[in-house]
Design a protein around this nucleic acid. Structure first.
Lengths: 214, 214
DNA sequence: GCAGGTTATCACCGCCAAGTGACACGTCAG
DNA sequence: CTGACGTGTCACTTGGCGGTGATAACCTGC
């Protein structure tokens, strides 16, 4: 409190390289989101993780909102990579096959990438504007991927494909999300690898049952 | 509902009635969870809403954890009520019918009861111990309901009913949760009532497709 | 050299959260 | 009456958060 010391510490300026600093901030933001989820996300936390003064976040990104927007950009690319990475070697024969491939791929990504989970969760828990950028990034990537893979396949007549697909995607999202926090979800043991095999089979059954052409 | 009358009593000792006070605290906790969700939940918020000094929460419930445990108890009863409320007038004929009824009922509850949504959301977003009491309450109620309604119906041979059911329930949970924060979920307009009719149909299609008996 | 912009850091504010210690008031047993 | 106990209230500490203004170090153009 008193004028005790005049720390002669030169406090050496860091790298003094704006692009690098911006990247560090973004990296830290992504890492925090991955590790602690939406609730742990904040100016102070990001600045601390990036080993950067929070003032820089305000300067470079204009606060949390801008940071989220930038993170959304990055996430869109990330999703694109992850989806294309598993592009089907041979194009699917039927619409049902297409959706089946998408569903299994989505399940795999969700399970193996915490970042995917956390952004989905954020989308669920926060309705405020800035976060929309995050969810939008996933929607965009998913939509683009479907459009590319779909070719000229069409769902069977009389089947409400958008609704069916929405249910399938939702099911995957919820279950993986819940498996993160509970060892038992709706009576299934999420630690057990066999459970996931059963789920894959169930997904296929559901999709085939819905899209079986007459 | 739980709007407490403006007690004109001059900030002197209130009712001096421990059971009533405990109930007020629990009411406030439930109301806050319903209205603001997990993120708004805290000692101060509950105390404020209950018009009670937070010290009492510590004394009577031992802090947030105990309060959550008590709330879990209450939620289990709540779920039981909500589920039984829509008990099928005539017992279902097939296992598929049973699940279909459960699914549609669950969709209805989720849509119409914010409390159901918020507790599900909490379950997803928080992995720490105390919250487990909340999610467990729902699982318990659901399980009991199924057991009661199932009678001696059995799923068709060769169908992995638990996995299928888990997917259906998950799908409902995720979609309703997402609809709360986004006007567009996986390409469906959540404001439009027609969307929900389509979803109900899709759920039936999925269930029937999976449980069609040979 | 020096001026001016950029980069990074520090110190501080107001706010609200969780948690705690002490006190005031009623009640009831003895 | 009196002391012990249960109930309710207040004031306070600690700590984290988002946000802002001032300042120090560095680089570049003139």
């Amino acid at each position: 409190m008193a004028t005790q010391d005049k720390d002669p510490v030169p406090a050496k300026d860091r790298s003094r390289d704006r692009p690098a600093t911006e990247r560090r901030i973004l990296d830290a933001a992504q890492s925090i989101l991955t590790k602690d989820g939406p609730s742990g996300f904040g100016i102070n936390a990001v600045a601390r993780a990036a080993n950067v003064d929070k003032q820089l976040i305000y300067r470079y990104y204009g606060g949390l909102d801008g940071l989220l927007a930038a993170l959304g950009e990055r996430l869109a690319l990330w999703w694109q990579d992850r989806l294309l990475e598993g592009a089907p070697s041979t194009p699917p024969q039927t619409y049902g096959d297409l959706i089946e491939g998408l569903a299994l791929r989505l399940l795999y990504i969700m399970r193996s990438e915490p970042l995917a989970l956390q952004s989905a969760l954020w989308e669920l828990s926060d309705s405020s504007g800035p976060v929309a950028a995050l969810s939008a990034s996933r929607s965009r990537a998913l939509g683009a991927w479907i459009a590319r893979a779909r070719g000229d396949l069409l769902p069977p007549d009389g089947v409400d494909a958008p609704a069916i697909n929405a249910m399938i995607i939702s099911a995957i999202g919820y279950f993986v999300l819940a498996s993160r926090t509970s060892a038992n979800v709706i009576g299934l043991a999420t630690q057990d690898e066999a459970t996931w095999t059963r789920l894959e089979a169930a997904i296929c059954v559901l999709i085939r049952g819905a899209y079986r052409s007459a």
